[in-house]
Amino acid sequence: MFEARLLRGSILKKVLEAIKDLLTQATFDCDDSGIQLQAMDNSHVSLVSLQLRADGFDKYRCDRNISMGMNLNSVAKILKCAGDKDTVTMKAQDNADTVTFVFESPNQEKVSDYEMKLMNLDLEHLGIPETEYSCTIRMPSAEFARICRDLSQFGDSMVIACTKEGVKFSATGEIGSANIKLAQTASVDKEEEAVIIEMDEPVTLTFACQYLNYFTKATSLSPQVQLSMSADVPLVVEYRIQDIGHIRYYLAPKIED
């Protein structure tokens, strides 16, 4: 028996919004530590890694490890039926070929259940090595979303250059060029609004705007985003989900031909 109940059901709604444009299908791997999902987009340019810890749920039970392959478009459709304040419960029997989503309104007066067929997905799983990154940048997630949206008007690619002075986002295209520089916040009153840079070595990398814009669908999950970069390795864009886990996106850089 698998059962995971979340009073803050809107978290699951937001998680689906954060992955459904990038991934068409994915496997939810559940064990007694929680729920993990790892999947690449169709072009194998980026990778999504989601972790929701068991202790972040209001009730969590997983008697046997279970892998549930799901069509994410279908899951998103079902979760759209949940109210923002609803409690969401996911449950499945051992070896089941369906999963059930139960939504309860705050006053318990409306209870809905949606049963969905599971899929047998044979998806490639990648090992992500432990990496010490040369630069980590923490910044407001809404600011990052704005920068990605604004710069993608200028070109398909965005250069992210991090030095100890700050971080510069640039794009160049037919209409011209755009540069956005963010300095490290001098004094941190509210950590959520700060730009904080930790740098061992300066790094400049180029990334496809389209994927960065997909990642920013996770903005509502966290007020802050963390970017981690080292030369010649994938960028990590991490949104922490309060008290329960995180969603990380890995994006391969573009390189000179």
Binding site: M40, S43, H44, V45, S46, L47, E124, H125, L126, G127, I128, P129, S157, T206, A208, V233, P234, Y250, L251, A252, P253, K254, I255, E256, D257
Partner: peptide, 13 residues
Amino acid sequence: MSQKTITAYFSSR
């Protein structure tokens, strides 16, 4: 510039 795939960096497990 060319776009590398993520599998060029991370290997199958």
